[in-house]
Design a protein around this nucleic acid. Structure first.
Lengths: 128, 128
DNA sequence: TTAACTGTATTATTATATATAGTACAGTTG
DNA sequence: CAACTGTACTATATATAATAATACAGTTAA
């Protein structure tokens, strides 16, 4: 369920963080579900436990999960936030990608279709 | 015209590359226009000439500009490509950003509005 | 022709981020 | 008590990014 590309230039801990967010959005992970332990996930992916710990710490800082020393890591409560503005850092990243895509010769309509396709994979979070 | 954030985690040479692409898309830079010299641009931004050279080399590899030793760097001819598919690396980046934005609590519609707003800043390339 | 400019190449150095390795500690659980 | 949790720490290795200082080949205009 958590697939990592060890050859990617994207840091492993960042990939893990994203994969877990994806699984929550898709409904595979629900509130208070336990996450695999740092050591087990590290072993199954084939990376260092410190790398998993870093991912979990990043997720905890963003209130995606919570951890209890001795017990493990768990999916945090969905506080069901609704923003009507894209956070600035994400907006900048979005701008950069869209510009690169447009520069590559792809039409605006195709980009929008793709955005719809991506978001259609994630239900629940928006429809509530 | 070329604005760089020295504190950003995005490499300076990458920011420069993007800024030049933006200026081309906006029509500020046209075919065969000369670019500022490596040394002058470096001085005006306050970075090392090698960093600018690296940006120019990246742009030349992608056929965005061409360089003539002794004369300078120039905007390449617009081969006016039209793709109906987003290149895979850009698609992955787009997926990651959109997922992060959705996770932050922003609606699909708002994302699409933003994509339209971004692409509306760049005219000419698509309308031909 | 010469001086001042182009991009490019090279070597060395520094800083930072990422990942690994190994160990240790506090807390939990059966 | 044994086996598991997350966390913390030090040390090490690697890659990338950026700087610094030269040097070289080609161009351009005085």
């Amino acid at each position: 369920m958590i697939k990592i590309d060890l050859k990617s230039s994207i840091p492993i801990y960042e990939q893990i963080s994203r994969e877990i967010k994806k699984n929550i959005l898709k409904g595979f992970f629900k509130e208070n579900d336990p996450l695999p332990s740092v050591r087990k996930l590290a072993a199954s992916i084939g990376v260092n436990p410190n790398t998993i710990a870093k991912a979990y710490q990043e997720l905890e800082r963003n209130n995606v999960i919570y951890t209890v020393t001795g017990r493990g890591a768990f999916i945090a409560e969905n506080n069901n936030k609704t923003l009507n503005k894209i956070p600035e850092n994400l907006l900048n990243t979005l701008k950069n990608v869209v510009i690169e895509i447009i520069y590559s010769g792809v039409n605006e309509k195709i980009i929008i279709e793709e955005v719809k396709k991506i978001s259609s994979e994630f239900k629940g979070k928006d429809s509530e």
